[in-house]
């Protein structure tokens, strides 16, 4: 899966989880930048990403994904 496709699916997942149809995320986006991104929605986001990309994050990764860039990188390493 190329970067563009990953960005597209990831953005779609973010929009669904945070219920903001026009949400735009960038590599440097963190929880501070998105309304409602707290520890609970973080878990919901990860579960949704696991399902969308059919990947599994390990225990350290679950806790460590601070920004969107790290998520993209990790997902890319797992799907490719």
């Amino acid at each position: 899966m190329n970067q563009e496709a990953i960005w597209e699916k990831l953005t779609e997942t973010f929009r669904e989880v945070f219920d903001e149809p026009d949400l735009v995320v960038r590599s440097e986006t963190t929880a501070k930048d998105v309304l409602d991104w707290d520890s609970l929605t973080h878990i919901q986001l990860l579960v949704a990403l696991e399902q969308t990309f059919e990947v599994r994050f390990n225990t350290g990764e679950v806790a460590g994904l601070a920004d969107v860039g790290a998520m993209i990188e990790l997902i890319a390493s797992k799907v490719n």
């Binding site: 669904e16 989880v17 219920d19 919901q44 579960v47 949704a48 399902q51």
Partner: peptide, 11 residues
Amino acid sequence: SDYPSLTSLCR
């Protein structure tokens, strides 16, 4: 039957 859909419904 799947969790992401359930969270959407809850929202």
